[in-house]
Design a protein around this nucleic acid. Sequence first.
DNA 1: GGCCACGGTAACCGCAACGTAACCGGGGTG
DNA 2: CACCCCGGTTACGTTGCGGTTACCGTGGCC
Lengths: 105, 105
Amino acid sequence: MPFRIGDKWAGMVLTCLRDGPRRFSELRVPMHRVSAKVLAETLRALERDGMVTRSEYDEVPPRVEYAITPLGRSLFPAMDACRRWADDHLGELLAAREAYAERGA
Amino acid sequence: MPFRIGDKWAGMVLTCLRDGPRRFSELRVPMHRVSAKVLAETLRALERDGMVTRSEYDEVPPRVEYAITPLGRSLFPAMDACRRWADDHLGELLAAREAYAERGA
DNA sequence: GGCCACGGTAACCGCAACGTAACCGGGGTG
DNA sequence: CACCCCGGTTACGTTGCGGTTACCGTGGCC
């Protein structure tokens, strides 16, 4: 596709924010395979594109909350369609890949 | 997203095959910004994943036709949902990006 | 003999994405 | 004083996607 919306982890971030705002460290729990750096980069990009908002609270220890915007939410139908495709057809794809590997061998 | 289906040009290839089989050189016309190498790689990957078939005809000059499979066709609803999102919301995204750049400046 | 069409491959390269590890500041806590 | 929490940043290294250019084999045509 000619346009890429977000990076590798953007979809997962938006999904994590689906049910309400989350703090940086709360996002890291379900996404434990993402380093702080990459998560921060992803959040910056999503903020830049108007998909999430970043709210800083002057407390101690510091608190930062990320929330999804209506624009971010508008992506869910498309994301759900992709997920549904994967649920329905990923097995076929992997089978085709395996058959192809066997023919090659 | 954790899974990537195809590469940068896969969606465009499938769209080009929507209305029937096409030869390699026929695909290059609407996709003139894609080099032969990258198009070939894309087609190999789609073939490996069972999204297109490759039919070689023993003629001269050689003829090779690529056709979309039912599995490839099954991707269209999800792709259409993404396209619809872009049609409806890409302007918002770009506006948000511009507003962000101005705040930064 | 030279050139063309077709459908590629091979060699090389740059850059962005991704990842790891170390560090930071400021206030609270023992 | 030392150490922890939170939310990052900086420096650095690696991988791989996508791109460019050059080249290939077969057979037909002039």
